[in-house]
């Protein structure tokens, strides 16, 4: 495993792709890989791109790649699409709009299916971003699924969250309700060559006045992604936010919070794993019968299982 990870850290694309797969499929090597990766992380600027379907997330990402490349950055993209809850299959088609970058050695694009995760992200999106970070990407875009409430997960893993709105979709209000207004660091009104974009800009500004901010006031920018209009400004804003984080108390808080969450999540996951295993080992037909006959109750059983988990480990 060490060899593979070393190759990945050296920028070997196939190795990077392979270890992402291993982590994504919860291979037994996951822990080992992440331990090897971890010391090399912390250099990349992770940018979340979120917004409703049809807002132009992929097209905007495609153009952002150009702009960050011009700044001499090495770019990674993780594009998340929903998996079918019935078959587990997925069609991952976000990269269609970025295919012209696929042969660029300084751009790595990876599609992920949500695989049962309910948020706008896949279960291992964060780990994949860490891997790209460690393997030399300066900027990592994470394009979310884009379906309302669940989108707020992005704030847990991205340094900067960029929310894309469009005129005439009628769903801007939905997004505002979903609490995404509070988490976005940069607002973009895309397709700003259409009627009604000024109204969306004005609405966002009004909403922003109602929300409390620290020392960063989220800018509201307009773009026409298809024509690459407004992209230099957006790029600058995102870079400014990255700089702000690296220099401010907010940035440090964000990092501390993320590390805390990370540990908590690992704990939860491990406890869940042990608990589930212990439960499966002890879930005898006799026990189920006595539950059915009300000779015992689920609380007592669960209590006993927990006892076993903590005593055994």
């Amino acid at each position: 495993m060490q060899g593979l990870v070393q190759k990945a850290l050296g920028g070997h694309i196939r190795s990077i792709a392979r270890i992402i797969t291993m982590v994504e499929s919860e291979s037994p090597y996951t822990e080992e890989i992440m331990k090897l990766i971890y010391p090399h992380t912390g250099n990349a600027h992770i940018i979340g791109i979120t917004g409703s379907p049809g807002a132009g997330k992929s097209t905007l990402t495609d153009k952002l790649i150009d702009n960050f490349k011009q700044q001499g950055k090495n770019v990674g993209v993780i594009a998340v699409d929903p998996s079918s809850p019935f078959t587990g299959g997925a069609i991952l088609a976000d990269r269609i709009r970025m295919q012209r970058h696929s042969v660029d050695p300084n751009v790595y694009i990876r599609s992920m299916g949500t695989r049962g995760s309910l948020g706008g992200l896949a279960k291992s999106t964060y780990e994949a971003a860490m891997i790209l970070d460690a393997c030399g990407k300066d900027v990592i875009f994470i394009e979310t699924v884009g379906v309302g409430q669940s989108e707020i997960d992005i704030v847990k893993i991205a340094d900067s969250v960029c929310l894309i709105l469009v005129p005439g979709m009628g769903d801007d209000i939905q997004i505002m309700k979903a609490g995404i207004m509070e988490i976005a660091d940069v607002f973009v009104v895309n397709k700003a060559d259409r009627d009604g974009f000024e109204r969306v800009v004005a609405e966002v500004r009004i909403m922003l006045d109602l929300v409390k901010h620290g020392n960063w006031t989220p800018p509201v920018l307009t773009t026409v992604a298809e024509k690459a209009k407004g992209l230099p400004e957006l790029t600058q804003s995102l870079m400014d936010h990255g700089k702000f984080l690296s220099e401010s108390r907010e940035g440090l808080d964000k990092k501390l919070k993320r590390i805390t969450i990370e540990v908590e999540e690992i704990l939860q996951r491990e406890i869940a794993r042990f608990t589930e295993r212990t439960w499966k080992e002890n879930c005898t037909p006799e026990l189920l019968d006595s539950l059915l006959a009300k000779k015992t109750d689920p609380y007592t059983v669960a209590g006993k299982i927990l006892e076993m988990v903590f005593v055994n480990n």
């Binding site: 079918s84 997925a90 991952l92 990269r95 269609i96 299916g113």
Partner: peptide, 13 residues
């Protein structure tokens, strides 16, 4: 069809 048989299909267009 491949998606419906449980695979992840990366569609390039």
């Amino acid at each position: 069809a491949l998606r419906d048989s449980g695979m992840e299909v990366i569609y390039t267009g």
